[in-house]
Design a protein around this nucleic acid. Structure first.
Lengths: 124, 124
DNA sequence: ACAACCTACAACCAGGCGGTTGTAGGTTGT
DNA sequence: ACAACCTACAACCGCCTGGTTGTAGGTTGT
């Protein structure tokens, strides 16, 4: 079950690792676009763009809604935020490392203790 | 060259799209580790882990420093922040969309002409 | 009804990716 | 000096990916 988180992360980052898909995501975050409208913006076949949209959809970064003969794609900002949250989580690991370094400097030998790091460790 | 930005983003997201690499990044963000220490943590060959580290290094998410016979890897939190900033940028596009919707709701004059979608980053 | 359009999906192909093994060179400790 | 260790890199192999074309079905306008 917690491997599913990793599965989602795999899909997220893989979807974002292609510049065409990132550009598509930008467009559909800014507003709804039909697949053919999107396809017209790129120098590749309709089917190729369709596959890119499918990758983004499978990753949950985009949702499609059917209106008549068109498929209107819309970006999911919550998913984008989730990706951002994962990055923030990585950052917090780094902050933990700094905290550990501070600990080492502050703790071991009382008489060899020097001025604590000037330090940018935290701002919260 | 703004295509270089896209190249960097390609490398970032591709590097992050593998769960082993994300795990390696977590470890080296939390503290320095030699490549062999990292390799011991995974059920794959040393060379495989070495390649993962190389991918992260090429993407700028990790730096290596040589100490004796060991290569000590350390996570680069600034790069992680850059990735996060790119996500935030995507979010801002979405906020622009909402602003545009608000505009439509707020504008009670249907006969007044509105600007057609300016649609960012045209490269045609 | 018909043509034009939009979408979906399958089959196919070149190239890249994640993994392996093997080989070679530099560093450390005895 | 020697063995043990750590790293780097090349060659190879399935598999997946990003692109293509082709075919089929649903929707719209005339």
């Amino acid at each position: 079950m917690d491997g599913m988180d990793e599965d989602r992360a795999d899909a997220w980052f893989h979807a974002l690792s292609d510049r065409t898909r990132r550009d598509i995501l930008r467009r559909v975050l800014a507003g709804e676009h039909s697949v053919s409208t999107l396809a017209a913006a790129y120098d590749m076949s309709f089917a190729a763009v369709q596959k890119h949209v499918a990758v983004l959809e499978k990753a949950g970064l985009l949702t499609k809604r059917r209106q008549g003969r068109e498929a209107l794609a819309s970006g999911d900002v919550a998913a984008v935020r989730s990706v951002g949250a994962m990055l923030t989580e990585l950052e917090s690991l780094w902050r933990g490392r700094i905290a550990r370094i501070d600990e080492l400097i502050a703790a071991p030998e009382p008489h060899t203790r020097q001025a604590p790091t000037p330090c940018h460790t935290r701002k919260d």
